[in-house]
Design a protein around this nucleic acid. Structure first.
Length: 678
DNA sequence: GAGCACTGC
């Protein structure tokens, strides 16, 4: 039998760290034999740093309402802790152990790893749930899910009663859903004293997290029940398995950071014996510039840069181009990967031999995470293109939590649906600004989702909350019912919920533009999507057809999939499936009922394609990727804005100005700015 | 005639 702590047996030895009660286990756990008959996997599990803390973790979870585990990547906490809990009986009696992740990919990867370690079929004892995909069964004991999915589950079961332990992993990333989840879990704890929380974080912002979860016994109504349960969160540190990474700083600030990155790569190549190089830059443009510089250098000056294989890495590249970075480096060559922050968290580079790393300014936490990428398989070096003084004095410790810099419309409606009426008084781990809250409430009110008392309206508000999409899109779907164009609008909604349906690759811009023209609709991008979708279906969902038309086949498969899910949800909410055939007027009208707040009017007399938002008179332009770029119709609504040197509207549709007051009379009041002018 | 990155329901 594996060794673990049981209530009533001798406690593991723990010492209090002087710094704020951080607990370290001093006893070394004795090795145990496998109880599963998978000796090699069991051995692997025991080699993970977290294994030493198995007993301590189980002890702390047993005796504390909340346990905060601080551990670097590679400590094994994500895969092991849920298994420890299961082995200790936390999944007995029909209870389930939950472990949340911020990203879908991580959910799937971790779940399949744990299923493999336990020797069970994925979807049975070990399962996972992500949006549009549920791989669990009634026998699931350990369930991995995105934090967003767990929030959705709270709509049906506000106290999350089936879970005995909820582990919130990667809490340091501070995604909006993680923050909402933490706030709500704190509330649940008061009603469910038997529930245990594990907050797992890679950085030592554990103290603020600990302060957040500090609750008094009286407040939780626990004067008599569970007297042994500590209300103060326990904090446990688990070391990672990373190797030492030597940090280098520049002596003086650099002015041209692309040039500095290129020079540093050449310097490393010249001075260091072996190992690949990973460079972080900010965006696609800078990356292509750096790749070009390095490639030119390789051509002009063969001596200093021969043997370099330069590879860009950003989300816009095709899957095949991205996968080049995983190809083994030939003998005598050195691979240089020049990447966006996609390599910071999203891609697993553990298997590649990264020795050196160059970094551009970000937060300290991010910088540490990037440096950590150099020490995954052996000791590495990290070259920072800023001074040590800058790192120590200027750089923010953590990035700003997403909730303090984002649109809160979805977040507010979700809290409303969970019965949290006093949104402004909600107990957040990091409070969003009241202004952004009020802006979100305004939009929801104008959509008709909230009433004068800021309560969800019936049925619209509850229906919108039920659909797992941006409330503006949900509203568009629901209003398509009366307009008789639900088939078309569901397609638009599905396309809007994926990144892009076009292939994105370097050097084919012209072909791509031409392909786009074949589908372009005068009514704008959203109607263009309908043409593409129709063509895809007519081709028999052919990948060749996609290839020929520069359309991303995998994206289209996803669109079909998501559309099917949305169709089911919409029908459940009483939307009748109906096509408007060729009548695009009703489609545009449905779009307007969702996106009226994003209405813009072309500025007359400027002739440079400048628009102003009807509501706030902000200067905006149509994005160059839009089919209406340079067409500049007078009145449009946009789906989203990208801010670069200008504010660019992405995915636009033409509208009639008279519709604005028709679909949102309170928003475009008679006494307000008159959209009918001109 | 021009494009910041990434994530989620």
């Amino acid at each position: 039998m594996s060794q673990f702590w049981k209530p009533g047996t001798e406690k593991p030895r723990l010492i209090d760290d002087e710094e704020g009660g951080v607990l370290f286990l001093t006893a070394s756990a004795s090795s145990s034999s496998s109880g599963y008959g998978f000796a090699s996997i069991e051995k692997q599990r025991q080699r993970l740093p977290v294994y030493k803390y198995r007993t301590a973790i189980l002890y702390l979870v047993e005796t504390h309402a909340t346990t905060i585990v601080v551990g670097e990547t590679g400590s094994g906490k994500t895969t092991q802790i849920p298994q420890y809990l299961k082995e200790a009986g936390w999944a007995d009696g029909g209870r389930v152990i939950a472990c949340t992740q911020p990203r879908r990919l991580a959910v799937q990867a971790v779940a399949s790893r744990v299923a493999e370690e336990m020797g069970v079929k994925l979807g049975e004892e070990v399962g996972y749930t992500i949006r549009f995909e549920d791989a669990t069964s009634t026998g699931t004991l350990i369930k991995f899910l995105t934090d967003g999915v767990l929030l959705r589950e709270m709509m049906d079961d506000p106290l999350l009663t089936k879970y005995s332990v909820i582990m919130v992993d990667e809490a340091h990333e501070r995604s909006i859903s993680t923050d909402i989840l933490l706030g709500l879990l704190k509330k649940i704890q008061r009603r469910r004293p038997e529930l245990r929380l594990i907050i797992s974080s890679a950085t030592i912002e554990a103290k603020s997290m600990s302060a957040f979860f500090q609750t008094s016994r009286r407040r939780r109504g626990l004067q008599d029940a569970e007297p042994a349960l500590a209300m103060e969160p326990a904090i446990l540190s688990v070391e990672g398995r990373g190797f030492n990474v030597q940090i280098h700083y520049v002596e003086d600030p650099v002015s041209d950071y692309i040039q500095a990155a290129v020079s540093t790569v050449l310097l490393i190549h010249d001075k260091e014996p072996f190992g690949d190089i990973l460079v972080f830059l900010t965006g696609q443009e800078d990356i292509e510039a750096a790749v070009k510089l390095l490639t030119e250098e390789a051509r002009d000056n063969r001596k200093s840069s021969s043997g370099l294989i330069v590879l860009p890495l950003y989300s816009g590249l095709s899957r095949a181009e991205q996968e080049l970075i995983f190809s083994p480096t030939p003998r005598g060559k050195r691979k240089v990967v020049i990447s966006t922050n996609i390599a910071e968290t999203s891609l697993t580079l553990e298997v590649s031999d990264i020795e050196n790393l160059v970094v551009a300014p970000i937060s300290k936490a991010s910088a540490r995470q990037r440096a950590g990428r150099a020490g995954r398989v052996r000791p590495g070096k990290c070259y920072r293109l800023y001074t040590e003084e800058y790192f120590v004095n200027e750089m923010a410790t953590e990035g700003i939590p997403e909730i303090q810099r984002s649109n809160l419309v979805s977040c507010v409606i979700q809290l409303k649906a969970l019965g949290i009426d006093n949104i402004l008084g909600f107990d957040w781990p990091a409070s969003p600004s009241p202004e952004s809250m009020i802006r979100a409430l305004e939009v929801l009110y104008s959509l008709g989702v909230l009433d004068d008392d800021a309560k969800l309206t019936a049925p619209l508000g509850f229906q919108v909350a039920e659909i797992p999409l941006d409330p503006m899109i949900s509203k568009m779907i629901l209003s398509s019912n009366q307009l008789g164009c639900s088939e078309e609008v569901l397609t638009i909604a599905a396309v809007l919920s994926i990144q892009s349906i076009w292939v994105s690759s370097r050097g084919i811009q012209k072909e791509l533009d031409e392909a786009e023209l074949r589908f372009a609709a005068a009514e704008g991008d959203l109607v263009t999507f309908l043409n593409v979708y129709k063509g895809f279906l007519q081709s028999g969902k052919s990948s060749q057809w996609c290839h020929k038309n520069y359309i991303n086949y995998h994206a289209m498969k996803k669109v079909v999939d998501i559309r099917e899910q949305l169709r089911r949800i919409a029908q459940r909410l009483g939307v009748t499936l109906k096509s408007c055939d060729k009548d695009m007027q009703v489609v545009r009208k449905a779009v307007t009922t969702g996106f009226f707040a994003n209405a813009c009017r072309l500025e007359p007399f400027t002739h440079n394609g400048m628009y102003k938002t009807v509501r706030t008179s902000q200067e905006v332009y149509i994005h160059p990727s839009s089919v209406l770029f340079r067409v500049n119709p007078k009145w449009i609504v946009y789906h989203s804005i990208v801010s670069t040197d200008r504010q660019y509207m992405r995915n636009v549709a033409t509208i009639e100005p008279s519709w604005l007051r028709e679909v949102a009379p309170h928003f475009y009041r008679q006494d307000g700015p008159d959209p009918m002018l001109h």
